[in-house]
Amino acid sequence: MSYQPIRFYQTGTFTVGNRLLTEEQRSVQSGRERTNSLNSGHRACQGCGEALGARYAIDAAMAATNRQLVAANATGCLEVFSTPYPETSWQIPWIHSLFGNAAAVGTGIAAALQVQGKRDVRVVAQGGDGGTTDIGFGCLSGMFERNDDVLYICYDNEAYMNTGVQRSSATPPTARTNTTMPVGESTGARFGQGKNLPLIAMAHEIPYVATATVAELRDLEAKVRRAMEFRGARYIHVLVPCPLGWGHGSAETIKMARLAHETGLFPVFEAEHGEVKHVSKIRRQLPVEDYLKPQTRFAHLFKPPGHADLVARIQALADRNVKRFGLVDHAEEAT
């Protein structure tokens, strides 16, 4: 006898809204105790993924540490839009030193707190992908290797947006930036380049590494809270779409982040001590075109006659992620 199994996909996703959840399951952002660590009035662009990610992440860190938090910030969009003199959006102790040293400044803060016996005060260092994967990479790797008690959060918008959209080592292949223009024979950023920083962080065998997107803010909050349960070096890599640099509508930031996950291009997972412990499954893997087409940085791939070969290579990258991280539960799909 054949039957149709019923699946309640909404279960466990928290999309039912906070009113129907128990107190402890509610998001930090919806709570009365929300700290507005990155307060309103800052100068981020409309639809800025980084501002959204930072607000959720830092408020969650504040909640997890009972408001005993200090932040170090790399130079970049987040720093520039949050602290135009004489204003600041930060409601927490916050320092900006340089582009490439946020992790090391975090180490210094943690060292000072340790000698002062302030074990309850925790440290976050944060920066964009340029400040993390490129110019700040040396300091970041050093902080990981020493296992300093710092949570580093990278808000990855896949290029140097603050300086006007130039390629970073987090820029995906074929993306158009102002230093990877698809002109002449060029088809944008090259294949075979770039760094996967979450995997590099895991190779340092630090206690906790996670990826997240601004499409699943509840997940981001939970990962920040989880990170604060560990001592030592921790790393969270948050995908934060940038309407300016990606060329999508400012109302489509969360949609783009969700598509990055659901195509398999940006695997969302958690790892502890170098081992993957949890992956956010994709219910139905979407074709990469769904993600690429709405973004003008990939427009050259679809202009007639098009670059079907390049789209296929991007699809292969997504498929590799799906396989590598087990993003799709094929057994379930088969039923």
């Binding site: 030193s97 090391a104 400044v105 210094g108 943690a110 707190l113």
Partner: peptide, 12 residues
């Protein structure tokens, strides 16, 4: 120097 900056700014 960056670690010294963070430490000094934290009062050490």
């Amino acid at each position: 120097m960056s670690v010294a900056i963070g430490a000094s700014a934290t009062g050490a």
